[in-house]
Amino acid sequence: MNLDPMPATVAPVTCRANAAGLVMARQAGGRRMPDRSGIKAEAGTEQATRAATDTGAQTAWMIAVRDRRDRAAFARLFDFYAPRLKAVAMRSGASAAEAEDIVQDVMLSVWQNAHQFDAARAPVAGWIYRIARNRQIDLARRKRRPEPEELTVEVDPSPDSDQILGLEQEAAALRNALARLKPEQRQMIERAYLGELTHVEIRDTTGLPLGTIKARIRLGMDRLRHELQGLRRK
């Protein structure tokens, strides 16, 4: 068993919410949702299971928000992300009140921009991460960050559930790889991705775990690229 150096705080609602989220999504128009029974608990720990179920539930919630403007599903996403978004904002120097303003802006953007969410292209966490970073850039800089144009293909209303599952597994594996890092490596990643808007040198001096993350990113990249090529051929 791997030692998790900094156990993540899990909102107490998570387990209950997972089941509810999946049931909600399954009831939504009978769309086949990914079967999660085959997910390998890669780290062999509670952490791995938690990451996998979190990711799956979040996808279901986000699809429910996008397709049915489901407030209960949105509230689940809020319960998971709002406390984390607040902590991240406060680490960058925001006061508690300012951080809650940021949380409010980001979560309302999630609701407003839900139509842009495509479960086959981005995990929920990565999609919300982009929104949160854009908010931080808006606050810190005079000019907005230029964003890539959207793909001209429309969001597929019923994407292949294997595609979604593949992406979810990838995202859960990334999260597990992150949880297994040594504290100093993990702090480096947190500073680079969640800290202030400055370049952080990521040194790979301590070997394997960081290498695993890089390999994961590359794997995810290959998968996403093939998918995008497939979309363009349609």
Partner: peptide
């Protein structure tokens, strides 16, 4: 590079999921 960007954002998202949570004021939700 679009795929590479999504992958980078997926790692940022994973870091966000693993981040410690702060208590919210009671009225925020």
């Amino acid at each position: 590079c679009r795929a590479r960007l999504h992958s980078q954002e997926a790692l940022g998202g994973a870091a966000l999921e693993e981040a410690a949570a702060a208590d919210l004021s009671s009225g925020l939700r």
